[in-house]
């Protein structure tokens, strides 16, 4: 190892070797060390995710929130609204046929573009990279989004529309 014998060549000089052979040899060592460092960083990043989900779980929406009157949104239309929690999250409310209502987060799960409901093809569309979601379940039908859209439960009371947190089936 380097430390075994006192080296007569100072460190700065060893960083700029004269022979090309030496230079390439040293840089490969360094590359390997950087890979090791990177590997450690990735492990730390993974640990950060664990800590995040252990100690800072996402808060569920509490209570019911008034959105709008039923008469305001005709069939096949969508309505944008916001729910102010710890952060303000934009949502869309969709009026499907058979008097069914759905509420989804408006942020696309791919790169957070705003999605919109297209009644003509009966899909939720993300215009950025042509991602499509099922308007009933929020599942990805096509395109790059990796996860389904987060959904809220919709409650209709006396012609008024409320949203509340959906009981989530947890993934195993």
């Amino acid at each position: 190892m380097d430390e075994k014998k006192p080296d007569k060549v100072p460190n700065w000089k060893r960083d700029f070797p004269i022979q090309k052979k030496k230079a390439t040899h040293v840089s490969r060592r360094e590359f390997a060390k950087y890979l090791g460092l990177f590997s450690g960083t990735l492990a730390l990043g993974n640990g950060a995710i664990v800590i995040k989900s252990l100690y800072f779980p996402e808060e569920e929406l509490k209570g019911e929130h008034f959105v709008c009157n039923q008469a305001d949104v005709p069939v096949g239309e969508m309505f944008q609204f916001e729910v102010a929690g710890t952060t303000v999250v934009p949502y869309i409310l969709i009026h499907l046929e058979d008097n069914e209502w759905r509420a989804f987060e408006q942020k696309c799960t791919h790169l957070a573009c705003a999605v919109r409901y297209r009644a003509d093809i009966e899909k939720i569309e993300c215009p950025c990279h042509k991602g499509y979601f099922n308007p009933r379940t929020g599942d990805v039908l096509q395109g790059p989004p990796p996860r389904p859209l987060p959904q809220l439960a919709v409650v209709v009371k006396d012609g008024q529309i409320y949203v509340k947190a959906k009981d989530q089936e947890k993934f195993i």
Partner: peptide
Amino acid sequence: AVASFWLLRYLPDPIDSP
């Protein structure tokens, strides 16, 4: 990551090492 660090032990010495 531990395996990567451990692998670094086996890096050959630099050619200009004493």
